[in-house]
Nucleic acid binder design. Structure first.
Length: 579
DNA sequence: CGCATTTGACCAGCGC
DNA sequence: GCGCTGGTCAAATGCG
């Protein structure tokens, strides 16, 4: 492609040069003709004639030379054109072999974009680029996106998300939840989390995984409520989500020395909403907060977001289940009017200052117990994928083993789990400038695509149905399903909205946690770099790394969750350590 | 005294 | 059927 572009750019230059030379030749020809017409019968002029003849001869010789040169250039040009066309043909003939499904899926992708009703479709050339990526805006397009976000934000403000915008920003043409369908019904949510933490999965589990799917799960467990789980670095007992909670139990979960705390909403006595808070076994600085149920009472803005998240998660997961039955390409049953513009959001609060924030990782996880949407805010997208070797990208993609869809870019800890049913989509950093969707250069597209394919090949092959599917179809199906499902976006948006704002809210939990969470967002937001006028992820990482490292170093040991102060006012570790 | 938290007991689901 | 585990209950305890 690069060669083609170089070729195409050089050809006009050569042609231009040839045209210029031809003009010179024409002028000289006319001069020659005119000079030949001028002849004097005078003897005095004979000397002049001789001179003119000499001049003519020399001019003719020069012209001949120029003509030869011109012919040579013409030949060169024709040769170049010939080579260009041959290369072009060779490229088109070889490209489908290298990425057959990529080519094959292009019409589907275009179709997807049309269905998705994106504000701006990419150009024809851009449409050829398939990005299996979620990621950040490039610095160039960020302003446009921001502008667009601002215009759309007004619309969103009237909706359920206060001052927040979130969308999947991707060019997916995929649509299947077959991958999700392979979730083991026997794996509880916690098991899934443990597997994610440990990077292991027992063979028996994987075998059972292939036997049934989410449809069965939901049929067998119709009362199981969907959950929204959020992983975030937090050094306090819990995070301020704008709601009132009462702790009603605590358990030591298997595989995690840190106890799991159970909370219920106390805003209303009959409110069924539950919350679980637990620290990650491998990284004590990571707090896992899981919400379940729907509030049956009015809520503050942030708490409303959680409610929206859980209900959206329920809708989304049910939708994903139903769509899996329909096969590839028709899986997306949800509305297509949703703006699939970037896995980012704007917040009106003072922490994010209406700049987009990008989630490093989000996943949908289903288990027999509870289908769960997991938002992982602990792993920022550190390395711009286009600067990353494919192997790095791949290893990053294969780092985690939570179930189902996972948009990841950074490695966590575990190795590639061949038994996990996980579809990983790289979390890229480039963003299409016009549509607000993600685009990368073709090389990266291929890398991302191939990596996704390779990873899925290693991880999503337990079910015969899935095995019968073409790998790219699997990718396409799953990605499309997610990308086109507005409930997925709303779930993510709502869940995260609850943590963005630290102002207002009738929470009884401490402000310190809210501030800490705000700091987390602040730390993980690429805005830090964009504020300085540097929008690239690299600078973001440079700035990000140090405070994160120092912050983690400053994080002392994390005691069990029972270190709260009174009246639902947990005490931060710093406060506790000062004691 | 009222309210929240703690903590052991209990129950249900699942695997063997 | 038994054991394990997650989730919940409720009495005891602590705090303002």
């Amino acid at each position: 492609m690069e060669a083609s572009k170089t070729m195409s750019s050089s050809i006009p230059d050569v042609a231009e040069t040839l045209i210029e030379r031809k003009k010179v030749v024409d002028i000289r020809n006319s001069e020659e003709d005119s000079s030949s017409n001028v002849s004097s019968p005078n003897e005095d002029d004979q000397v002049n004639d001789k001179r003119q003849e000499d001049h003519l001869k020399s001019a003719k010789a020069k012209m001949d030379a120029v003509r030869e040169d011109n012919e040579r250039l013409k030949l060169t040009l024709s040769q170049i054109l010939k080579d260009y066309h041959s290369l072009k043909m060779h490229f088109h003939s070889t490209a489908p072999q290298d990425e057959p499904t990529l080519q094959k899926n292009r019409p589907t992708q275009t179709e997807f974009f049309q269905q998705a009703s994106l504000p701006d479709l990419p150009t024809e050339e851009e449409s050829d680029l398939v990005s299996l990526s979620l990621g950040r805006l490039s610095s160039v397009v960020e302003k446009r996106e921001e502008k667009r976000n601002n215009s759309e934000k007004n619309h969103e403000d009237h909706g359920k998300l206060d001052g927040l915008e979130l969308g999947l920003d991707c060019k997916f043409h995929l649509g299947s939840t077959e991958v999700m369908k392979n979730q083991s019904p026997k794996r509880s949510f916690d098991e899934s989390k443990e597997d994610e933490q440990n990077g292991t999965c027992t063979p028996s589990k994987s075998l059972k995984t292939a036997k049934s799917g989410d449809d069965e799960i939901l049929q067998q467990n119709p009362l199981k409520k969907p959950r929204v789980s959020i992983r975030a670095r937090c050094d306090t007992q819990s995070m301020n989500d704008g709601c009132q909670w009462r702790k009603y139990g605590q358990k030591i979960a298997k595989g995690n020395p840190c106890p799991r705390a159970y909370y219920r909403c106390t805003v209303s006595s009959s409110c069924p909403v539950r919350k679980q808070v637990q620290r990650c076994a491998q990284d004590m600085s990571v707090l896992i907060t899981t919400y379940e149920g729907t509030h049956n009472h009015p809520l503050s803005g942030k708490a409303k977001a959680v409610a929206s998240a859980t209900s959206s998660a329920a809708t989304m997961l049910k939708s994903g289940s139903s769509t899996s039955q329909q096969g590839i390409g028709v899986s997306a049953t949800s509305s297509t009017s949703t703006n699939l513009t970037g896995f980012n959001f704007n917040s009106t609060n003072n922490l994010t200052t209406s700049r987009p924030f990008y989630f490093p990782r989000a996943s949908i996880s289903t288990s027999q117990s509870h289908p769960t949407v997991v938002l992982d805010l602990t792993t920022p997208n550190i390395i711009p994928p286009h600067n990353k070797p494919s192997s790095t990208l791949f290893s990053a993609m294969s780092s985690s083993s939570s179930t189902c869809l996972n948009f990841s870019s950074t490695p966590s800890s575990s190795s590639l789990d061949s038994k996990a049913n996980t579809l990983y989509v790289p979390w890229n950093t480039e963003f299409h400038s016009r549509s607000g969707t993600l685009f990368n250069n073709r090389n990266h597209v291929e890398a991302s695509y191939n990596n996704s394919q390779a990873y899925i090949h290693n991880n999503v092959q337990t079910s015969p149905e899935v095995q019968n599917m073409h790998m790219t179809d699997k990718i396409a199906a799953a990605t499309k399903a997610v990308a086109r499902d507005p409930t997925f976006q709303s779930a993510l948006a709502a869940a995260i909205t609850s943590f963005i704002g630290n102002s207002g809210g009738n929470t009884q939990e401490n402000h310190g946690s809210a501030e800490n969470f705000g700091q987390i967002f602040h730390l993980y937001s690429p805005q830090q770099s964009t504020r300085d006028g540097i929008g690239c992820a690299t600078s973001y990482v440079n700035k990000l790394s140090q405070p994160l490292i120092s912050q983690q170093k400053n994080l002392k040991s994390f005691p069990p969750l029972s270190f709260s102060r009174s009246k639902s006012t947990p005490m931060s570790l710093d406060e506790e350590s000062e004691k």
